[in-house]
Design a protein around this nucleic acid. Sequence first.
DNA 1: CGTGGTGTCAAACAGGTGTTTGAAAAGAAG
DNA 2: CTTCTTTTCAAACACCTGTTTGACACCACG
Lengths: 226, 226
Amino acid sequence: MRVAAEVFADQGYRSATIRDICRRAGTNVASVNYHFGGKAGLYRAVVQSGGAFTSEMAGRLAASGGAAEDRLRAYVEVFLARVLAEGPCAVHGRIMAREMIEPTEALDQLVDGFIRPEAEMLSLAVGEIVGKDFNREEIRLLCMSVAAQVVFYKHCRPVVERLFPDFRLDSAAVSVLAESIAGFSVAGLRGLRAGRLAAQAAKMKGTSGTATVTRSAERRIAKGRN
Amino acid sequence: MRVAAEVFADQGYRSATIRDICRRAGTNVASVNYHFGGKAGLYRAVVQSGGAFTSEMAGRLAASGGAAEDRLRAYVEVFLARVLAEGPCAVHGRIMAREMIEPTEALDQLVDGFIRPEAEMLSLAVGEIVGKDFNREEIRLLCMSVAAQVVFYKHCRPVVERLFPDFRLDSAAVSVLAESIAGFSVAGLRGLRAGRLAAQAAKMKGTSGTATVTRSAERRIAKGRN
DNA sequence: CGTGGTGTCAAACAGGTGTTTGAAAAGAAG
DNA sequence: CTTCTTTTCAAACACCTGTTTGACACCACG
């Protein structure tokens, strides 16, 4: 039921009431219990119904082909467009955002079915950009740094709107936003790769390395971490 | 009431029931209406009660003093520590996270009282790092990219835990996490600054700069720096 | 002792929740 | 048409929500 997806999307599973759903859908309250076995069954059906997104993502990412940086740019673009999409075709993204904050049993299947494959693609691209000198845990953190920038505008939109009332997210703004996120991320990954390479070169030579590396290394040490 | 803050923090305003709060607190259901005038009054009192955090943040940021990159690192560290803090002293952060997803009237005062001053500090640091060639809107986006990486681990923790079951967030992990976020961000901001400078230099020389050209120029710069 | 104010409590209230029920309607098969 | 299954519907059910109520205990003060 489309209206059920809509209501679940912007009210959350707990706050949504089947009476509201049925009133909007023009049907009876008892019908959902008859066809789905209850509110939970309806929700499960809604969650499982949205499955045309991963293929779209995979398609665009596969089409963009070769260069890792282009794949990352495509990832940010597609991911952001889906997450910020308006209208009825965005309910799946909104439900997923809801699930992240108020997890139900549906989150597990959502993670395994949608999020994990995308994380895999992102991880490959990030790994290529930073090079072989980063281990799996480091790459994992960097992937989350990239993905975080996208979901931020989904999860913190109320705060952003209050903080910058003139900040609008029309389709043009989404484009420059995607470019900003992708540019920042690519620059960060490249910079980290360069820094790691320089640090390794310095270690091999036994010298103290370039100015840039020395600064961040000194900072790490002088920090006196507790 | 501390237990009220606790319950509000991990149940949300709507799902939390005053009966549950009062049962845990060992008091009567009517007392909250007597003292606070209702559930909303209790919540307002709880939200306003947590006000010792901004000063701590401001103190550490002021103490770290001069270099913009150090201030950014301090920002990430303090922000992340607060956001991921466990125990009773973290309820304010958790409530703020809740407010971002399910905004109530309390969000406005939360934004003006806590978030805006921190955003101001972050904006200053980011502006210094990227240099004068970025306008307010660009810097704003970059600030959100930095902050996004921190709040990500708050908002998407359920997803992260399901995606990487071995990913633990003890205090040691938080330290390396902060270092990863800060390092990635600083590298990104530095890279963007270098790219912008190179693009401007190219434009002054009369060469036409499309996005592709700019990107390759960034690449040249990033490689040339080491 | 009495008195008024203050805080606490169990009970009740009015409204909303998901679910169940039993009857009525619609449709398919003989 | 009859019979059977499938679907729809209004009403009721049991439970939970925030709030109100009126009685009861406490306590300083006169």
